[in-house]
């Protein structure tokens, strides 16, 4: 149990997807301008990451390993995740229109998001068990959402500020991201 908690916080804070592993940077800058959309994107990523981990883990361990085809994991995972997002989008669209309107644009964006693929690889590389990889995915998604919300909060304030003209917009956001990354570096000491 303590192992699972360590994995959750390790993934959420210490090995944060965006700031430490540099995965999913495009939504980090693309969707972090408004708090509302950042939250929607974070939740959508959380959902997809968990489902993708739950699906790819058995495929790797019960299909690829027995046939000695571990080298094929990239192409197989990409295939599986792409079709998975399609199914999730279809399901949400037909069952809950309100949720679809809230997440709508972000779900297709996630299909090509490296963060989702990255987490499934990390799960395999760290030799996590099934439950461990689900927790790891939850932690990674939570960490991603957290950073997106923090960043959007900062950027909403940044719009008010009056930086030198050359720094206006994305440059100042990059610099802010750098400081945010430095802050998250401080989590290094908590869990080895």
């Amino acid at each position: 149990m303590s192992n699972l908690i360590a994995i959750f916080f390790g993934m959420a804070l210490v090995n944060n997807l965006v700031l430490v592993k540099f995965l999913g940077l495009c939504p980090f800058f693309g969707v972090s301008k408004k708090l509302g959309s950042a939250f929607s994107m974070g939740v959508a990523v959380l959902l997809v990451i968990v489902v993708a981990s739950a699906v790819t883990w058995p495929i790797f361990h019960f299909l690829l390993i027995p046939y000695g085809a571990e080298f094929m994991r990239t192409v197989i995972f990409v295939l599986v995740i792409a079709s998975l997002v399609q199914i999730i989008e279809m399901t949400i669209k037909r069952t809950n229109l309100t949720l679809y309107n809230a997440l709508g644009i972000y779900l297709p964006l996630i299909t090509t998001n490296c963060a989702v693929l990255g987490i499934t690889f990390i799960n395999i590389d760290q030799a996590y068990t099934f439950s461990e990889s689900i927790i790891a995915a939850l932690g990674a998604g939570a960490g991603f959402t957290l950073v997106l919300i923090i960043m959007s909060g900062i950027r909403e304030r940044l719009d008010m500020a009056d930086p030198p003209l050359a720094f206006k917009g994305t440059p100042i956001a990059f610099i802010t991201a750098m400081f945010l990354g430095l802050c998250f570096l401080a989590f290094r000491g908590i869990i080895r």
Binding site: L63, I76, L79
Partner: peptide
């Protein structure tokens, strides 16, 4: 394997 996975995904 690739054919199998692709086929299954398409079917689903």
């Amino acid at each position: 394997l690739l054919t199998l996975v692709g086929f299954v995904a398409g079917t689903v």
